[in-house]
C-alpha cells in the first residue's frame, strides 16, 4: 500500500520554508512527518500530511511547485534494531533506497517513510514478509 507524499521545491531564501508552512496552516492541513533535503541552492521539503491533495492544491494556488508521489509508510516495532531488520529485507532483494525518514508516535509502533528505486517491488517484499504499511489518513488517526 502506498501513501501520498507532498514534496515542495523551495529556494534557499529566508522565510521561504515558513511561507510553505503558513499555507498549510491556513488551510488546516496537518503535518504528520517531514524531511528537508537541502543543497546550497534549493531544498526539497517532503511532507506526510493528513490531506496531501488539498495541500498541493493550496500550495499551487500560492505559486509553489509541489508534487504528489507514492511512498511507503512502514509500520515497525518501536524497539532497538527493528529498522535494521527492515532494511535487511529490502537490501536482500536488491532494491535501492532513494531516501527515508521516520516518525514515532505515542504507541508501540514506529513509522518509517521510505522511497525506493522500485516502489512496487518494495511493496511486494513488505507484504511477503508480513510488514505492514499504512496510508496518511490512517496515520492521522493514530
Amino acid at each position: 500500500m502506498f501513501a501520498k507524499q507532498l514534496t515542495v521545491f523551495i529556494e534557499n531564501r529566508t522565510g521561504r520554508l515558513a511561507e510553505v508552512l503558513g499555507v498549510l496552516r491556513e488551510n488546516n492541513v496537518n503535518i504528520l512527518s517531514l524531511s528537508l533535503a537541502d543543497t546550497t541552492e534549493f531544498g526539497l521539503l517532503r511532507l506526510i500530511v493528513d490531506n496531501a491533495a488539498a495541500g498541493k492544491e493550496k500550495l499551487t494556488e500560492k505559486g509553489f511547485s509541489s508534487l504528489l508521489s507514492d511512498v511507503s509508510i512502514i509500520k515497525i516495532p518501536h524497539k532497538v534494531g527493528s529498522l535494521q531488520e527492515l532494511l535487511k529485507i529490502i537490501d536482500k532483494n536488491g532494491v535501492n533506497i532513494e531516501y527515508m525518514y521516520g516518525l514515532s508516535v505515542k504507541c508501540d509502533d514506529a513509522f518509517i517513510v521510505l522511497k525506493a528505486s522500485d516502489g512496487k517491488k518494495v511493496d511486494e517484499i513488505l507484504t511477503a514478509n508480513g510488514v505492514g504499511t499504512i496510508t496518511c489518513e490512517e496515520l492521522a488517526q493514530i
Partner: peptide, 10 residues
C-alpha cells in the same frame, strides 16, 4: 518534471 529527488535536479 517536478521531482521529489535531489539527484534528479542535480
Amino acid at each position: 518534471y517536478y521531482t521529489d529527488e535531489i539527484r534528479v535536479i542535480e
